[in-house]
Amino acid sequence: MTTTATVGPLLRTWRERRGISQLELAGRADSSSRHISFVETGRSRPSEEMVLRLAEHLDVPVRDRNALLLAAGYAPKYAHTPLDDPAMGVLREALERLLTAYEPYPALVVDAAYDVVAANRGVLMLLDGLPEHLLAGPLNAMRLTLHPQGLAPRIHNLREWRGHLLAQMERQIALARSERLRALYEEVSAYPVAGADWRGGRGEPVDGAVASIALPLRIEHDGHLLSFVSSISTFNTPMDVTVAELAIETLLPADPATAKYLRSLAP
Rank of each mutant, 00 (worst) to 15 (best):
L146W: 10
Q172A: 08
V117A: 04
R143H: 12
E179H: 13
P82V: 01
Y114K: 01
L98K: 04
M169L: 12
Y114E: 02
M142W: 05
E204L: 14
R199V: 14
Q168M: 07
L144G: 12
L181K: 02
A196F: 10
N140Y: 10
N120L: 10
H156C: 10
L124S: 14
Q168G: 14
L184S: 09
G137R: 02
R202D: 14
R159L: 11
R182H: 13
N140F: 08
E187C: 05
P106K: 00
Q168I: 00
E160H: 01
G163W: 10
G137L: 05
E160N: 05
D111W: 09
L151Y: 07
L184T: 12
L124Y: 15
R159Q: 12
E170D: 14
V110F: 13
Y191W: 09
H164A: 15
A176P: 01
I173P: 07
P192Y: 04
L158C: 06
D115M: 04
D84E: 13
L127V: 02
R199W: 08
E93Q: 06
A167G: 07
G201D: 07
L83E: 03
A209N: 11
G203W: 11
L151A: 09
P106T: 00
P86L: 09
A211L: 12
L158W: 07
N140E: 04
Y114T: 01
L139H: 04
A190C: 06
L95I: 11
L144Y: 08
I173D: 05
L95W: 03
A112Q: 13
A101S: 14
P192M: 06
A141D: 04
S212N: 06
L139Q: 05
R143Y: 07
G163A: 13
A112D: 13
R92C: 01
R121T: 06
A94F: 06
V109A: 15
I213T: 14
G163Q: 13
L95P: 10
D207A: 05
M142Q: 11
H147I: 11
A112T: 07
L108W: 14
V116R: 08
R92I: 01
L130K: 04
A194Y: 00
Y102S: 11
R121I: 02
Y102M: 13
M125K: 08
V109G: 12
A87P: 00
G150D: 06
E132R: 13
E93G: 01
E96F: 08
Y105G: 02
V116I: 15
A107Q: 08
S178G: 03
L126F: 09
V193P: 08
L135W: 00
L130G: 06
G195D: 10
R182N: 09
L124H: 15
P82L: 01
Y102D: 13
R202V: 05
L108K: 13
G89F: 00
L181R: 00
A174R: 14
D207S: 10
D128M: 08
M88C: 04
P131M: 11
E170C: 06
M169P: 09
A136C: 03
A196W: 08
V90P: 06
S178K: 11
P86E: 08
I213M: 08
R159P: 02
G122K: 00
Q149F: 03
P205R: 06
L181Y: 03
V117S: 03
L146C: 09
